[in-house]
Structures are given as C-alpha cells and as structure tokens.
C-alpha cells in the first residue's frame, strides 16, 4: 500500500479547497439538491461539481446522507428541489435506466449480483443496445446471434481481467462477498460508461481481495473513466482518491485532496460530534 500511487491530482490545479468549489472540467454538477423524509432533511447540498477523469471520494460520518445523495445523483431517487446535470444533460424526470444509457452506471452497497443467473449471464446483461432484447427479434436468433457473440467475448475478457473466469458458468449466488463486488464492477463496465459510481465498494470484502479491488478502481481512471465512490474505509480513500468530498448532516462541509482533509477543522468537528472518543482517526464506520 506504500507503493507510489498513480494520481490525477493535476486535474485539480487551481481548484480551491472549499465546499462547492468549481472544477476545471466538471462531468457531473449538482445544484441546490434537497431531499427530506417526512420532517427530516436527509440531503441539502448547495453545490457540487465532480471533476472528469478523476477519482472522487464521498465520505462522512454515519447518517450524513451520503447514500441518499448518491441515489439522487444516479436518479434512483428524486430530489424535492434542485438540479443535477450529467455531461450537460438535466437529469430531472429522467428514468434511472436512461441515466445508465447516458454513460453513468452505479453499483450498490449491498451487492446486487443476480444470484440465480450465471456469472456470464450477469455480465452479458450489461451489454447496451442489444437487438435481442426486443421480444419479436428474440424469436429470430439469427438477428442477434452475432451481437451476442461479441458481447460474450467482451464479457469473457472482463471476467479474465477481474479474475472471475473460473466462475463463468456458476450461479452468481455461489460467489463470495468480494467476488460479488468484483462481478458487479465488471458488469458495470459492460455498459461502457464514462462515469462509474461505486456505493461502498469495500464493504464486506475480505482483506486479501481489497488490494485487487483498489487496483481495478485505479484501472478505471487510467482508462479515462470518472469514478465517484462512497466509502468508510479511510485507507482506500487515502490511497486512491484524487479528491475528497466530506458530508455531514446532509451538507457538504469540506472538499479537497485527501491530505488536506484529515486536518480540516470542520471535518474533525463533524466526526467528533458523531464519535466523541475517536479523535483524529477518520475511520468511522
């Protein structure tokens, strides 16, 4: 873990370390996003821009509204007010599935590997624009067989890269927790996204697999994808993120490169408020 990490921090040249800072080339912009459950305001974010081509971490103590905000950004939930722009497309009223087709794909905190389907079926499902997904065309295999072969080939290549080839024809339900995370990430890549949103990619992953997962996430950036992830594991945040966004009580309280965050007073206060006996250790679970 001490190896010199590759970074994309140069992309943030000239960006101030403050909440709501404007980025040099934002891919995703959220403005005035607010979501309340009953009387409880879960998310109230004035402004957030996510830099293209970098790995951004979204952290914060429990109940900070990270996952809710994440759901709002991926359109799995609708905000009460506010706008979200992805690549210049307004996401208001756009169905969640269309967001994926725009090039933003997400994973879930509790992995959603489709356990009664085989690993390869899980992968092929991710292929977009499939001819065989029309009922009538499905009845004529010659219309989609060639495309299916291409998709399967791509899926096999990804399985190889994520070291899941040996499980290819097993039901996804038989995979271990870490393997499911890998499968979910590989499956997301089948969509050929520009931006990958990972909801707690390290949760429940055994330590042996963590390093390989980290490498895969960095690999995504090196291929030109933008990554935003929610995480509790500070090792991971420190090691791979280029930029960190900290939330507390539904708001963004700090932004900056990982080194700047640990010493940020607002962040320390937020974590101290939540865990009064854990001082500067940011590893709040």
């Amino acid at each position: 873990m001490t190896a010199e990490p590759s970074t994309a921090q140069h992309l943030f040249d000239g960006v101030p370390f403050e909440p709501g800072a404007a980025k040099n080339d934002p891919i995703l912009v959220a403005d005035g996003v607010r979501r309340a459950f009953g009387g409880l305001v879960a998310v109230d974010v004035d402004h957030l821009e996510v830099q293209r081509g970098a790995i951004t971490a979204l952290i914060g103590p429990n109940g900070a509204g990270k996952t809710t905000f994440f759901n709002l950004l991926t359109n799995f939930d609708e905000p009460d007010t506010g706008s979200r722009l992805f690549e210049g497309n307004d996401l208001a009223g756009v169905s969640a599935y269309k967001v994926a087709n725009l090039g933003m794909v997400r994973t879930f905190q509790l992995t959603k590997s489709l356990s009664k389907m085989t690993v390869i079926d899980n992968m092929c499902l991710g292929g977009t624009g499939q001819t065989g997904e029309s009922f009538f065309k499905a009845l004529f295999p010659f219309l989609w067989r060639r495309q299916e072969a291409e998709i399967t080939e791509r899926a096999d290549a990804l399985l190889e890269r994520f070291k899941l080839s040996h499980m290819r024809d097993e039901f996804a339900g038989t995979l271990s927790g870490g393997q499911r995370k890998l499968l979910e990430m590989a499956r997301a890549l089948m969509v050929k996204p520009n931006m990958v949103m990972l909801d707690e990619p390290m949760a429940g992953v055994n330590p042996a697999l963590k390093q390989s997962l980290l490498d895969h996430v960095k690999g995504l950036r090196d291929e030109g994808m933008t990554v935003l992830f929610v995480e509790h594991d500070m090792d991971m945040v420190q090691e791979i993120s280029d930029w960190v966004v900290v939330m507390a009580e539904g708001r963004i309280i700090a932004e900056g490169p990982p080194e700047s965050i640990a010493s940020n007073q607002a962040v320390i206060d937020a974590y101290l408020g939540a865990h009064h006996d854990s001082a500067l250790d940011l590893e709040a679970d």
């Binding site: 799995f76 969640a96 994973t107 959603k112 389907m117 079926d121 499902l125 292929g127 499956r187 969509v191």
Partner: peptide
Amino acid sequence: PWGRVLRAIREDEDAARSL
C-alpha cells in the same frame, strides 16, 4: 437476451435498471 432481462428483473429490478 430478452429473457435474460426478464430474469434479471425477477432477481433484482434495481440492478437491471442500473444497467
């Protein structure tokens, strides 16, 4: 592939939607 999408929805609708 059509049937594959149906089975995916049966297993987890949100996963299918996220893809």
